[in-house]
Amino acid sequence: MSDRLTTPAELDQPIAPAWSTRALLDRFGMLLILPLLLAAGGIVSPAFISADNLSNLLLQFAPLAIVAMGQALVMIVRGLDLSVASMMATAAVIATGFSGSDRDVATIFAVALAVAVMIGLLNGFLVTKRQVSPFLATLATMILLQGFRFAYTQGAPSGNVPPLLRVFGAGKFHGIPYNVLVLVALAIILAIVLHRSTFGRRIFIVGGNPVTGRLFGIQSDLIIIACYLISACLAAVGGLILSGYVGLVDNWVGQGYELDSIVACVVGQVSLQGGRGSILGALTGAAIIVIIANEVLLLGVPIQVQLIIKGAVIVIAAALYARKDN
């Protein structure tokens, strides 16, 4: 690879500007799949493209997308965060842990984020300072949270979600869900942080190669810990929003989101090997998953078949990207 000759012919090639068609296609090409999916959905079942359904789609999209963005950061630094779903459920349990009135919303956010910070730090600490594999470290914190949650709720959570949180989770403003507004704000901030800031550049350098990061004077450990921290916090926010959407709380709010968020990232071309990925990719991946699930539902296909389709989509999407990379 590195042995390839830089021939004079190669030098004569025009310098590709950042905005060339190919570069654009490389960066935004995967977005093209969304209108295709939407169109296909509309053809198969007209109800799909009704304004109502689309706005519901957005409602379901937001929590997964929020979690997937955090997952993307962790995956870029060669990690994996299996604790996100457990974190979401824990946040949801916290949401019902108070009086259920709007006065407590600020407290709920504060407590949930405080727990998320601890879990994120623990994940990051295990991965960096103790060199535990991310898979195991986050698996352990997942079980840890689960244990504490069960012990706290004695297996049967009760209590109500404050109305304000319900608005955030399920309410709409002229058809646009509030949770999407939250998502958009978070996405813009994260995209700037990841793709424009020095911190984001360091994430990519460390993710591509931690040794290089160290030689660049970057404190790789801090960068990695920060990514786990952000992921846990986003999971907490996602969990609160989801609890608002679901309305009632059990111990398993968010179940399956750990794998779904990883799948969303893989489908959105965030590399499992680290060093590659984007916020846009995570969002696209999450959108693809939600759209497919919704279309399948509308088709009246039994819920079982959804799983089969989801499984197939995961593998096929990953296979397509593998081909492209090679």
Binding site: V305, K310, G311, I314, V315, A318
Partner: peptide
């Protein structure tokens, strides 16, 4: 990824 997908299919 492969076995994750397979897992979903088998559950279905």
């Amino acid at each position: 990824i492969v076995t994750l997908g397979m897992g979903a299919v088998l559950q279905g």
